[in-house]
C-alpha cells in the first residue's frame, strides 16, 4: 500500500466534501425552495459533470488554469502559483466533478421536508437563516449525510480529473486510484491488487452507510 497516496486521497476527499458542504447546502436549499423558472438551467449545470467524462472537465480546467488561461492569469496576477500539477489544482477539479454527487442529494433532502415546517418557523418569528439552521437542516440531515458520504467515496475513487489536472506527483497529486493505474503500468500486480481491494472494501462500506442513513431518514 502506498501510504503517501493514501494520505493525498484522504486529504482530497475531505477537502472536496467539506467545500461541497459549504457551497452545496445553501445551493441545494435554494434549488429545493425557489419558484424561479430559470432554476432548471442551474439544475442542468449542476448535473452536467455527471454525464461528462471527467477527462473533459480536467481538460478544460487545465486550459483555464494554465499560464495562458483566464483563471491561470488571474491566479498569477495575485502572486499565486499556477494550479496544474498541484494539490489545490486537483482539489478544484475534484470539486467540479463531484458537484452533482453532493448537490443533487442535498436538494432532494431539502425538497422532502414539508414546507409547512418552514412556514411554521417563520410565523414563530424565526428568520430565513434561522429557519434553515434550526428546522430545514436537521430535518434534511439523513439525506445530507448520505450525500456527503457519497461525495467522499466518489472522490476517493476519482481518476480522470486527477490525472489530467495533477499528473502523477508522488505525495502531492498521486491518489490511490492513480497508484493502481501506475502499478499496473509497471506490472506490479501485487501492489495494485492490495490497493484495489482496499478501495473496494471502502466503497462497499460507504454505500452501506449511505443506505442506512437514508433508511433512518424515512422514519419519523
Amino acid at each position: 500500500m502506498d501510504w503517501a497516496a493514501a494520505r493525498v486521497t484522504l486529504a482530497l476527499a475531505t477537502g472536496t466534501t467539506a467545500t461541497l458542504l459549504v457551497i452545496g447546502l445553501p445551493l441545494g436549499y435554494w434549488l429545493a425552495t425557489t419558484r424561479w423558472r430559470g432554476k432548471v438551467l442551474v439544475e442542468a449545470l449542476v448535473t452536467l459533470p455527471l454525464v461528462l467524462p471527467p477527462t473533459v472537465v480536467g481538460f478544460y480546467l487545465l486550459l483555464a488554469t494554465g499560464p495562458h488561461g483566464p483563471l491561470g492569469r488571474a491566479v498569477e496576477s495575485i502572486g499565486g502559483r499556477s494550479l496544474p500539477f498541484t494539490f489545490p489544482g486537483i482539489l478544484l477539479g475534484s470539486i467540479l466533478v463531484n458537484t452533482p454527487f453532493a448537490i443533487r442529494p442535498f436538494a432532494a433532502a431539502f425538497a422532502s421536508v414539508d414546507r409547512r415546517y418552514a412556514e411554521a418557523a417563520w410565523c414563530l418569528g424565526a428568520s430565513r437563516i434561522g429557519t434553515f439552521v434550526r428546522v430545514s437542516l436537521p430535518l434534511a440531515w439523513p439525506g445530507i449525510f448520505a450525500g456527503a458520504v457519497l461525495t467522499f467515496a466518489h472522490t476517493v475513487g476519482e481518476f480522470g480529473v486527477v490525472l489530467m489536472m495533477g499528473g502523477n506527483v508522488p505525495g502531492i497529486t498521486r491518489t490511490l486510484s492513480v497508484a493502481v493505474y501506475d502499478d499496473v503500468q509497471a506490472l506490479d500486480y501485487a501492489s495494485a491488487s492490495t490497493t484495489a481491494a482496499g478501495l473496494v472494501a471502502f466503497a462497499f462500506a460507504a454505500v452501506v452507510v449511505t443506505h442506512l442513513a437514508q433508511r433512518r431518514g424515512g422514519r419519523p
Binding site: 409547512r116 412556514e119 417563520w122 410565523c123 424565526a126
Partner: peptide, 28 residues
Amino acid sequence: PQQRGVGLLFQDYALFPHLTVSGNVQFG
C-alpha cells in the same frame, strides 16, 4: 410573517418532529 406577530395553528399542527415538546414550545 416574522414582522406580523401572527399565531398560525396549522390544520395538522406541523409540530417540529425533531424537537421535543418543550423544544417546540420554546422555538419562538
